[in-house]
């Protein structure tokens, strides 16, 4: 996408001559935005993570914050746990979302299709806080599901369904579902029905058609969906804080604690940088494996 866009840009500026000064003025907001709010803050984050506090506004270069991270099992375990849970959540989102996307793209047609697709988008327009609040009302001890189970006679007393890893998964999958369904629907839309029919005529079973035709075709969508979902899950703060249990620490919570509760900005920055590194590394590997570019993913 980006290369195509660059060439078309060149052609246009040949036909309409522009002043160099004009280009510069137009570039100014972009440069201010990128340098003041993206590049310099992240360089500063790196600098702060590489220093040690000696006294009031007195610092020295040190790897202490990173050493602390690797030697303190609590931090290290939380980091690994967050990564593993995010991968699991991404997988579950894919497995649940794929049949839904296939249904929307291939099985159902016309107005109903548009309606179903819009319904998938609705939760995205609602604040994450409200969605999580909804799950809390459903799952808490005095919540809707607990009451329903008691009414149905399946359990004797109130059951606490909140504050466990399973609850956390439900919330995480819910929050990221949209980002899986949208790319999957758009990639499955481009699959020609006649290919599926051909597979069927040649004697393919449902399973072999899925494996040989549908999934290979949907691969770019699967890749971009997974990358986005993974990133969002990794950086999530609300869902783990509100739905997870006391021992289900999330790495963003560690960062928050270092910054706001303990006021240890140096080690908080180191944690932040590690999370950023993990997130970028996984995105990079995902893009390489699926042979896509960042520009394709955001399309």
């Amino acid at each position: 996408m980006s290369t195509f866009q660059m060439t078309s840009g060149t052609e246009k500026s040949d036909t309409i001559p522009m002043l160099k000064l004009g280009t510069f003025l137009l570039m100014l907001p972009l440069l201010l935005w990128l340098f003041l709010l993206i590049i310099l803050p992240h360089l500063d984050l790196l600098t702060v993570s590489l220093r040690e506090k000696l006294g009031y506004r007195e610092y020295a270069f040190s790897l202490q914050n990173y050493i602390e991270f690797f030697t303190e099992p609590l931090y290290w375990n939380t980091f690994v746990r967050t990564a593993v849970m995010s991968i699991v959540a991404t997988m579950i989102t894919l497995v649940i979302g794929f049949p839904v996307s296939y249904y929307i793209a291939k099985v159902i047609k016309g107005k109903k299709r548009n309606l179903l697709f819009m319904m998938c988008l609705i939760p995205f327009w609602v604040s994450e806080l409200v969605r999580t609040f909804g799950w809390m009302i459903l799952l808490r001890e005095s919540g809707v599901i607990s009451s329903f189970l008691q009414w149905a006679g399946l359990v004797d007393g109130p059951v606490e369904l909140l504050y466990s890893d399973a609850t956390l998964m439900v919330g995480l999958v819910y929050t990221s579902m949209l980002f899986m369904v949208v790319p999957l629907v758009s990639v499955l839309d481009t699959l020609d029905d006649s290919l599926i029919e051909a597979g069927y005529d040649l004697g393919g079973s449902t399973y072999s058609i899925l494996r040989e035709i549908v999934i290979p075709h949907a691969m770019p969508g699967i890749a971009s969906g997974c990358i986005v979902v993974f990133m969002l899950t990794l950086g999530n703060y609300l869902t783990p804080t509100l739905l997870g249990g006391k021992d289900s620490l999330w790495f963003t919570e560690q960062i928050y604690n270092q910054f706001i509760t303990r006021f240890n900005w140096e080690s908080g920055s180191a944690f932040g940088f590690l999370l950023l590194f993990l997130s970028s590394a996984i995105v990079f590997v995902g893009l390489k494996l699926s042979r896509q570019t960042l520009a394709d993913t955001v399309k």
């Binding site: 500063d44 963003t252 960062i255 932040g272 997130s279 995105v283």
Partner: peptide
């Protein structure tokens, strides 16, 4: 900015 987790963007701007 699309691939930077919101929490990290927040702390980096806070520090800067």
């Amino acid at each position: 900015p699309l691939v930077i987790p919101g929490v990290i963007l927040g702390i980096s701007i806070l520090i800067f």
